[in-house]
Simulated assay, not measured.
Amino acid sequence: MALVSVASATSAGAEADPVAIRAVAAASAGRYLVAAMGFAAFLGAVGLSTLQSGSFPRWTGVVALVGAVAFLITFLTAVVGLGEDSVFGYGFLPGILALVVWSMATSIAEYRAVVASARGPAPREAEG
């Protein structure tokens, strides 16, 4: 949604008002910052839970915690303020990558567990 807002604000090309473009960009970035804090809380909780319980491979918990820290850095942009020297770009990409990797890895692990339980126990060979 933010990309559409920025694209429509800059559709005038070189004649676009720089003040309007900055206002639209600042208004659009807020949505990403709220999402970043939610992702940070989510990934932090599942990362700690995974490391405590061992329900998924340990490396997925570490990936989730790295993502939580990256999204927390992204959220701190709201405190500092949006600008050209903002850390927003530095935290969001690693956070999104960690979220995608964690989602894929845990989905595959859960799928494998369901398939293995559906097949039942492996048949034993007759002793004899």
Rank of each mutant, 00 (worst) to 15 (best):
L82K: 09
S103G: 06
E127T: 13
L97Y: 13
L76Y: 11
P18S: 11
V63N: 07
G81N: 08
G13T: 03
F39Q: 10
A9C: 00
E110Y: 10
A25M: 12
V100Y: 08
A113S: 07
I73G: 13
V66F: 12
A64M: 07
R119L: 01
T50Q: 09
L43V: 07
A35G: 11
V46T: 13
V115Y: 04
S28A: 14
A113N: 02
L99Q: 07
V114H: 05
A98L: 04
T50P: 00
A78C: 01
P57H: 13
E127Q: 15
V4M: 06
P123T: 05
I73M: 10
A35D: 10
G13L: 09
L51S: 07
S117H: 06
V46D: 02
A40M: 02
V4L: 08
P57G: 01
G47M: 07
T50G: 01
F56M: 08
M104R: 03
G38D: 01
L33N: 12
L3V: 06
V80C: 03
A7Q: 12
G44Y: 08
A105G: 02
S5L: 03
G38R: 00
R58Q: 09
W59A: 08
V80T: 15
V6L: 10
A16Q: 15
G54I: 04
V19F: 12
I73T: 13
A16T: 15
V115Q: 10
W102E: 12
F75Y: 11
P18W: 10
P94C: 08
V34R: 15
A64E: 07
F75I: 05
G13K: 05
R119E: 04
V69H: 13
L3W: 13
I73W: 14
G54M: 04
A14E: 15
S55N: 12
A27Q: 11
G95Q: 04
G120D: 05
A20H: 15
A70R: 06
A40V: 02
I21Y: 09
A27H: 14
A16E: 14
P57W: 11
L99T: 13
S55T: 10
R124C: 01
A40W: 05
V114F: 05
R119Q: 07
L99P: 01
F42D: 02
P94Q: 10
S11D: 09
T74M: 09
Y111T: 02
D85I: 00
L51A: 03
E125V: 05
A64K: 02
L76A: 05
L3E: 12
T10L: 05
T77G: 06
A126F: 12
A29T: 14
L3C: 01
S103P: 03
R112Y: 00
V115K: 09
F71R: 10
S86P: 02
L93A: 15
V46E: 04
L99E: 09
V80I: 15
A9P: 00
F92A: 07
F39C: 07
A109W: 06
G47V: 01
A23F: 10
A2S: 08
